[in-house]
């Protein structure tokens, strides 16, 4: 069953006098419960695609259907509610709130969504334990390594038990082994919870772990490959 369906989505940005086309008539489907990787070089439009899926931005035209809801035309308040109850984000640069501890960063997400999300929110401490940071609950982001921060970000994204987890270059600022550790966590949680994961990356090595790979370039979908036998993150070589 398709969880996400995009039809003829266009998105442009105005930079001074120039009009930049980020997405140019993109149509695609993403299956529920799958881990999908959106692959493409810098400037290909993959982050814009992720932002549209997550309701961070709205398309100029076309439809973005997530579940039974077309979020393309939603107003700001509805988009906020959509993100709050349906989407968990993992960013390349973690974007943890520096004045909250690891536990509080995760708790913020759980607290927001509790009672409304896909299922009941998870216990923040339990989520931290599941990403291997049960002993780092009271640490502030500044006291954690990059990999640890990204695992906190993953725990934060999943704590509210969203139907959709979106990750923008989640390993982009991590070393290989730490990146693999983070991907292992995400893959395991994807299998365990059945939530839909969409990872955006320029690193083709990561594509091997995905159930489906969508390759984008110049604002268009170039191809979509189903991968019935994905690698485990441990098996990645890059």
């Amino acid at each position: 069953m398709s969880h996400i369906v995009l039809r003829d989505v266009r998105k442009t940005y105005r930079m001074g006098n120039n009009l930049i086309t980020a997405l140019d008539g993109v149509s695609l489907e993403i299956e529920a419960g799958q881990l999908t990787v959106v692959l493409g070089p810098s400037g290909s439009g993959k982050t814009t695609l992720l932002n549209l899926l997550g309701g961070l931005e709205s398309p100029d035209s076309g439809s973005v259907r997530v579940g039974d809801q077309d979020i393309a035309g939603l107003k700001n308040g509805k988009l906020t509610a959509y993100r709050r109850h349906n989407v968990g984000f993992v960013f390349q640069f973690f974007n943890l709130l520096p004045t909250l501890t690891a536990l509080e960063n995760v708790a913020l997400s759980a607290e927001m969504a509790d009672g409304y999300a896909y299922g009941r929110a998870h216990d923040p401490a339990e989520m931290l334990a599941r990403v291997g940071l049960g002993d780092r609950t009271d640490h502030y982001p500044g006291q954690l390594s990059g990999g640890q921060q990204q695992r906190v970000a993953v725990a934060r994204a999943l704590a509210k038990n969203p139907a959709l987890v979106l990750a923008d270059e989640p390993t982009g600022s991590l070393d290989v082994q730490t990146g693999i550790d983070v991907l292992k966590v995400m893959r395991a949680l994807n299998r365990e919870t059945g939530q839909t994961f969409v990872l955006v990356t320029h690193n083709s090595a990561i594509a091997g772990i995905a159930d489906r790979v969508i390759r984008v370039g110049s604002g268009k979908v170039q191809n979509i490959i189903n991968n019935p036998d994905p690698f485990e993150p441990d098996e990645i070589e890059w």
Binding site: N76, R84, A113
Partner: peptide, 14 residues
């Protein structure tokens, strides 16, 4: 600004 962006992305209302 970016923290606000993050919180808005997480679904925190204005």
């Amino acid at each position: 600004r970016q923290r606000i962006g993050t919180m808005r992305a997480m679904g925190i209302t204005r």
